[in-house]
Design a protein around this nucleic acid. Structure first.
Lengths: 352, 352
DNA sequence: ATGAAAGCGCTAACAC
DNA sequence: GTGTTAGCGCTTTCAT
């Protein structure tokens, strides 16, 4: 059933003790090159590979790292996962992926069970709430942890972020430079770190341009809620409507695109945070702030592996660059935006 | 460092032997309810959880299943992964995700190392080539395997597919019903099972309508290659151009959308295989064949767990339903398509 | 530089 | 119904 070739077999064939064979496998320098070579020959001949469970049982460390995200199917997290897996696998680690589904309780539960497995390290996209200190040591002195996309407020660990405020500031400043003074901000709950940061960048851009912050232009849907017409309409059809919109997350961006197209108001300038496929196939093509999720994953994995290998230096926070991608929708000038308040209905027919 | 509480501690506290405690944990019915209760109390009191490595070492089975896909970040595979993880976790299994990156050699390598870990089961989206029999027993009699999206030709295992030919047939028949007689088929290499099947469905739909199959209307890009103008132009700008296009995979769909919009030929009818975000925000909204990737993942995981639990029944092939989603682009009638052969250039400006 | 013995935490045999 | 013994495959003492 399972491979029967053990370290003992290798040792026997090589004419050494099991321990010596073990030393060779673990690159212990205290072995004669001659015997080491003999052992290696035996390893090849028998096609031996160490039993990871026996090893983990002994060492207390699984050759696996874990990634916990809200949702695996979210394109952003999927790209993060791919980056993590690439780096992990190159270093001989497997990647265990788990999703917490937006529930902090479940996140806790998932992390706990992963720790029981004595994973070597954990990459976490923290959920809505902060991750409290569990029963088992996490972070410095315990199982290495790296936070991605959002920081862990209760735990000082390596963190990989983009400069959300700066990126958002750039995007909004870009809109202002195109003559816009009434710019709507859309996103989900400010309970989320990234939304808070991006809102801060939005405010700062307005301030620097001498524009007043108008709370009525900020439309926040509830967590995971969709942007519906209740939030959207007042911005676009109110007495003093916006000429530009800034969407602070990908899900919201999809909603806005749908709504703008639905009511035929693609004349309104629009920039979204996070790139998406078909952004440049839309009419007009959508300008976005692009973040490199895969790079974030790779970077996080590199930090993690450094810790796994014993690095004890102070936790660091890495800010990765974002790119503003001008495609058209963000370059619409304010004076080009019509002042009409008409609205059409979108039809959805599903014949067959 | 790691939790020090072992089964022995539990047994001691409960005043029983380690084996009895073990029996309780494994729900062995041969334990008095009374002692079982005492053991459970001890487990709770000590917050005991079994050491998975010790268990795996003993039983030769890791409490993990693995998923191997081409690319984790592909939306389809990401959704499959989410489905698998949901079911696996509910059953107490972790999900190890690995990507094979389109290389059969690497796929083999990845699967081999997963088997070394004595994973309980494997869900595989087979790569371009077939998966040959490795050194270790796979499938019936060995480590349970389930193939998703594409079958394994060398190994008779449970398989979860959609009826690609049927779905494709429906889509093309839909176009024919809208008056189209010159329908282009686009996709990547026929080395890929799904493309072959979808092409077969396309041919069958033509046949049934009494339309001749015209090879010049089939444009296949190389594997992972993009559909470029070399393939696209002849279909649209040739002497006898198409009035409709059918794209047989998601990557190609994105390309076609971009190209159609780029040359301003959104008057051509279009249906894509696989749904995508913003499909209904495009102008016109894109009609698609939708497959439920998450359901495919869940179904595969259920089949796998059944095998893991000892089911020895003959391998089954499950065909999941697809849905045709009519949004507009697939409902354009042939006579509405203009015969112009003009072409405009798409501009891409990235200021800032 | 190498080996012998012990044991990581658990469960499969076989007692009782 | 429950306990005892042994050992999964490896690495950690501690000798030599």
């Amino acid at each position: 059933m399972r491979s029967a070739v053990t370290l003992k077999d290798v040792a026997q064939l090589a004419g050494v003790s099991a321990k010596t064979a073990s030393r060779v496998i673990n690159d212990d320098p205290a072995v004669t090159e001659k015997t080491a070579a003999r052992v290696r020959t035996a390893i090849d001949a028998l096609a031996y590979t160490p039993n990871p469970h026996a090893r983990s049982l002994r060492t207390g460390r699984d050759q696996a790292v874990a990634l916990v995200v809200d949702s695996i199917s979210d394109p952003f997290f999927a790209a993060v996962a791919e980056g993590v897996e690439q780096v992990a696998r190159e270093a001989g680690f497997f990647l265990i992926v788990a999703h917490a589904g937006d529930s902090p309780a479940r996140e806790r539960e998932v992390v706990d069970s992963l720790l029981h497995r004595s994973i070597s390290g954990l990459i976490l996209v923290p959920s809505l709430l902060n991750f409290g200190s569990g029963r088992r040591p996490l972070g410095p002195g315990g199982v290495p942890v790296v936070a991605v996309d959002r920081p862990l407020e209760n735990l000082d660990v390596d963190t990989v972020l983009v400069d959300n405020a700066l990126a958002s500031h750039q995007a909004v400043a870009h809109l202002i430079a195109h003559g816009h003074t009434r710019i709507g901000f859309l996103g989900n709950t400010v309970a989320r770190f990234t939304v808070r940061e991006r809102l801060a960048g939005y405010r700062r851009a307005l301030e620097e341009a001498g524009l007043a912050f108008d709370e009525s232009l900020v439309a926040l849907s509830s967590y995971k809620g969709r942007v519906d017409e209740t939030l959207f309409d007042p911005l676009v059809h109110g007495p003093d409507p916006v000429t530009a919109l800034f969407s602070s997350d990908a899900v919201t961006t999809m909603d806005i695109v749908r709504l703008l197209h639905g009511v035929g108001r693609t004349d309104i300038a629009f920039v979204g945070f996070d790139d998406f496929v078909t952004a440049d196939s839309l009419v007009p093509p959508v300008s976005v702030v692009r973040q490199d999720a895969q790079l974030m994953g790779r970077t996080a994995a590199q930090l993690l592996l450094r810790r796994v290998n014993g690095d004890q230096s102070p936790p660091q926070r890495i800010m990765l660059d974002t790119t503003f991608v001008a495609r058209g929708s963000g370059e619409i000038r304010a004076r080009e935006v019509s002042r009409r308040s008409m609205r059409s209905n979108k039809e959805e027919d599903n014949d067959r």
